[in-house]
Nucleic acid binder design. Structure first.
Lengths: 239, 239
DNA sequence: AATGAAATTTTGGAATTCCAAAATTTCATT
DNA sequence: AATGAAATTTTGGAATTCCAAAATTTCATT
């Protein structure tokens, strides 16, 4: 019954070099996160500890830890009777999280102006360039991943570790909603323009402008998510 | 072996009314948090899962969950070999967390200007009054608790649930450092003045002023913590 | 006394077991 | 067919067990 060993010896095991060897709980959390974000586990789906543990080839013990992690990220929630399910946040909840995310990114941008290395600034510029060039070519998921990578780089450039951790948490929580809205072609031009404004302000190391540009960007994220929801409602009503 | 029942039947059990009955892990986390904040478990102390579980009269299973919760809050950390210990954040780490806290509170204050109920604004004013009146009278812990309650009220008044949760997390993480620094009499007058500025700006529902006042307040928290550390270094050197 | 290899003990991760409570199904009664 | 009490099954929480790896102690060798 060495399922544990099986899992640890999989493809991703070689990435772990000096870090504390990943626990089964972390591995399971990674897999479940992906399932949830890609909607293989849809919002609201019940998660049976026994079934999911069996499906992952692990026991309930590490699975429970994994669910606790995902609860923190806001991807899993517990009913009053402690039955876990995939979170299904309301529009209002998503907007509340986005509001916090906006403040975090504005802070990160401001800090990054002072502490980003020249190579980090170039990295941001480069990612924006990739988005510009791939605007028509890139599949939605790739375009979106580049987008996320840019935001992540800015937060990393802030040099504030607590901020990175909290930002990652909100990112996980908001990933799906943002991805869904980014698939709409409509907003792509605006997204690009905003990204370029952010990169420019950062390159000029202008704290006020960077923070402002990031805040604007988040506001339009809210708009886009609202529109995406409206579209979906429309679709439902029409069909 | 119904230790579980023993614990659940203690004093605090009556508070749980309609909420999902607290798990042993949550109860244990509450106790450990208090031990850590009051330094009954000092920074850096090793936490033996078996010993601590026995001391709390529970098994390792819920204790492990509790430790995972406290890790999220930043009160417990794991060594490379996964041995848990009480976190012992460097000054730099504390300042990083305070920086994020500042942004969170500024956001909360801004939002509260729009969405605070009149009674919440009065609650804030009242807490500031209590601090003013108790300035010479109140024991440090009480004075500090009132301080914390005021900040908490503002965040609650923002109406943003995600913000409340994240703020609570940073609060746990920073509680001890802030308490230590608040014990110094030196800063008390300034603390009071700043609190009154915050309450006034909020009462006027002036978003810019409220956010600014909260940011100022956090900056002087950073100063106070630095001074407190310097004092302690001095003490050590002198004795 | 200093060194370090070998033996022993202690540690946390994970699987398993046990249990009470919640959810579901069965089935008698109308 | 509708109702709802009783029986059954399923669920998650917690204790226990098992194990490999890390930490510590022992002890032979210099």
């Amino acid at each position: 019954m060495s399922k544990a060993a099986d899992i640890l010896s999989r493809d991703d095991a070689d990435l772990e070099l000096e870090r504390p060897r990943a626990t089964l709980a972390e591995i399971a959390a990674d897999k479940l996160r992906e399932f949830i974000l890609l909607e293989k586990l849809p919002p609201g789906a019940a998660i049976s500890e026994r079934d999911v543990a069996a499906a992952l080839g692990i026991s309930r013990t590490p699975l429970k830890s994994a669910l606790a992690l995902l609860e923190q990220e806001g991807l899993v929630e517990y009913s009053v009777t402690r039955r876990p399910r995939v979170a299904d946040p309301s529009l209002n909840t998503i907007i509340e999280s986005l509001t916090v995310m906006g403040a975090l990114e504005a802070l990160a941008g401001g800090l990054a102006c002072a502490s980003a290395s020249q190579s980090e600034i170039e990295e941001v510029a480069d990612l924006v360039r990739q988005m510009r060039e791939g605007s028509d070519r890139l599949p939605p998921l790739e375009f979106f991943r580049t987008d996320m990578r840019m935001h992540d780089t800015i937060v990393r450039a802030s040099g504030n570790r607590a901020l990175m951790v909290t930002h990652r948490q909100y990112n996980a929580r908001l990933w799906r909603a943002r991805f869904v809205s980014s698939r709409r072609k409509a907003g792509r031009a605006q997204t690009l323009a905003e990204h370029e404004a952010i990169a420019a302000a950062l390159a000029a190391r202008d704290e006020i402008a960077t923070a402002a540009a990031l805040k604007t960007h988040l506001s339009s994220a809210v708009q886009n998510i609202k529109s995406a929801r409206a579209d979906r409602e429309h679709q439902k009503a029409g069909s």
